[in-house]
Amino acid sequence: MDRQTNMPLSQVLAEIVDPGLAMLPMSMDTPRARLMLLAIGRQESRFRYRRQTGNGPARGFWQFEQGGGVKGVMTHSATRGHAHRVCAERGVMWGRPNVWAALESDDLLAVCFARLLLFSDPKPLPAVGDYDAAWTLYADRTWRPGKPHRETWNGYYDEARAALGI
């Protein structure tokens, strides 16, 4: 796939989310997880940019930074083993610089790391329709964007709900 695209959520589900979540334990593939993955992907990159605009430090549709989400997933006790296995399956040598670089071109690795970052949070995933809890999970506990845009969240969340039919 090109570095920059305009992917409809139906395509994201079929080509990225479905095969990516199939690489993780079945218990991680839930409607709530899919909803968060689609909403966060839209919020972070619009599923358009795999490299942060302005050549910033984030990579992949879920915009992971080497010292942030990549490090977190690779070192958290609940996700490290899954991340190591997924990297091996994707042919990515274990190490933060390698994973970070691969996220820009490997969408399956990116969705796995995004799901694992959500999994690292100790609280349950928010109920479907709880915009504020979903925002808090994304903005305050997991991704913690430097310039959060709360005003766009509900629209992307609704778009994700519609794509999932929930």
Rank of each mutant, 00 (worst) to 15 (best):
E159K: 15
A162I: 08
D130W: 06
A39R: 03
S27V: 02
S27Q: 12
L117S: 02
H76P: 14
L21T: 01
F113G: 04
L38Y: 10
G60V: 10
D107E: 13
E159H: 13
W100F: 02
E89L: 13
W100Y: 05
H149Q: 14
L9K: 00
E89N: 13
G146I: 08
L9M: 09
D132C: 06
G69V: 03
T30F: 08
G68V: 05
C87E: 00
C87F: 15
R46A: 05
E159I: 06
D130Q: 05
M26V: 05
A133K: 01
F61K: 08
A78K: 15
V111R: 01
R90N: 07
W153Q: 12
G165M: 13
I166N: 14
V86N: 14
G67A: 14
S105L: 06
H82P: 00
G41F: 07
D29C: 12
C87M: 11
V12E: 08
P148D: 11
G54S: 08
M36Q: 09
F61H: 10
L125I: 03
M23K: 07
F61N: 08
A162F: 09
E151Y: 15
V86C: 10
D2P: 02
W94A: 12
G95H: 10
F119R: 03
D2L: 09
D2Q: 09
R90W: 15
A14S: 11
H76E: 13
T79A: 15
V73W: 01
T5N: 14
Q4G: 01
A114S: 01
T142H: 07
D132E: 12
N6K: 09
R51M: 11
Q63V: 05
A160D: 12
G69W: 04
G165S: 15
R150I: 06
G165V: 07
P97L: 11
E89F: 07
A110E: 05
L109R: 00
A88D: 11
P122E: 02
Q43W: 06
A39M: 07
A83L: 04
N154Y: 15
M26H: 12
G20A: 03
N55I: 03
C87Q: 06
A22Y: 08
R3G: 11
D130A: 07
A33M: 11
Y138R: 03
L38D: 14
L116Q: 02
P57M: 04
L24K: 04
V86R: 15
W135Q: 04
R161S: 13
S77L: 13
A14R: 12
R96F: 04
G20V: 00
